[in-house]
Every structure is written in C-alpha cells, then in structure tokens.
Amino acid sequence: MTGWILLSVIILFIVWIIFMYNRLITFKNDVAAAWSQIDVQLKRRYDLIPNLVSVVKGYMDFERETLERVITARTQALSAVKLGDKASAENALTTSLGSLFAVIENYPVLKSNENAMRLQEELTTTENRIAFSRQFYNDLVANFRIRIEVFPDNIIASMFSFQSPEFFLAEKEDRTLPSAKLCR
C-alpha cells in the first residue's frame, strides 16, 4: 500500500516537472521569437536609410553633419554584435534620425517632395515598429525573469540551467515619447 502511494507521488512529481519544464521552454521560445521580430524591423531600417540619405542629400548641402552622423550611426549599428552594444548603437541611430527629421521640417522644399515624404513615413513607421517590438520583447523578458526566479519554478530553472535573457534597454533621454511626434 505504502509502495503504491510512494509510486504515485513520484509519478505526479515527474509529471509536474515535465509540465513546468515545458512551460519554461515555451516562454523561452516566445522571447526568442520576439527578439527575431526586433531584428526584422532593424534590418528594415538599415535598408531604408541609404534611400532617404540619397534623396535628401541633393537639397541640404549645409546640413552635411547631420547626414554623416546618421550614416556613421548606421554602420556602427550594423557592426555591433553583443546585445548591449547593439542596443546603445541602435539608440544612437534613433537619436540621429530624429534630428534629421527635425531638420527636414525646416525645408519646405523637401516637404513637397513626394519621394522624401514617402521615405520619411516609411522610416517613422519603422521607428515605431522597433519601439513596439522592443516593448513586446521587454515585456516577455520581464515575465520570463519572474518565472525563473519565483519559488517552485526556480528549482527547475536552475536544474536545467535556464539563462535569464537581457533587456533591450532604451537610453535615458530616450525614455520620453518615441519620435512619432515628429511626423505630421
């Protein structure tokens, strides 16, 4: 009799471990998927920037500095590998693009150029998508971190050595609203 009870407790325990483990794996994969979403949007931005620069260049000779800052920020972001570096490089790129948009506002000529406006709209939406996918990713990471630190789950997490993923952080001055306000 005691044997049976012991056996069923062990079986229940194993089932519970399997259940917990599977749930953690699901969380982990959700985080990875969210990260790849950010990557897709970042890639989109890298592709758009050269187009915008080539359109804008003809009109704004005396704003070379702003353009060059955008270009260097882009190259830096492209070459960054580690997550922390990438985050700061991306933030630099966002800031430089923001100042470029602000400069464009002063050029009524550019504002009547359909190509430039279209590209600016494309970039604005990409900026927002980056912000949104980052927000989604960070929410997932926060949830995952809580999961692997609270009591019963943390045993399993340490048993199978789950790593807590890093946040994709925004710069301090970037904490206010996204650049969305620049458009329209």
Binding site: A34, Q37, T125, N128, R129, F132, S133, F136
Partner: peptide, 8 residues
Amino acid sequence: EEIHVVTG
C-alpha cells in the same frame, strides 16, 4: 502594421 507588431 505597428499595432500588429505590438500585439505580437
């Protein structure tokens, strides 16, 4: 599309 992104 943006809202699509934020809802995952």
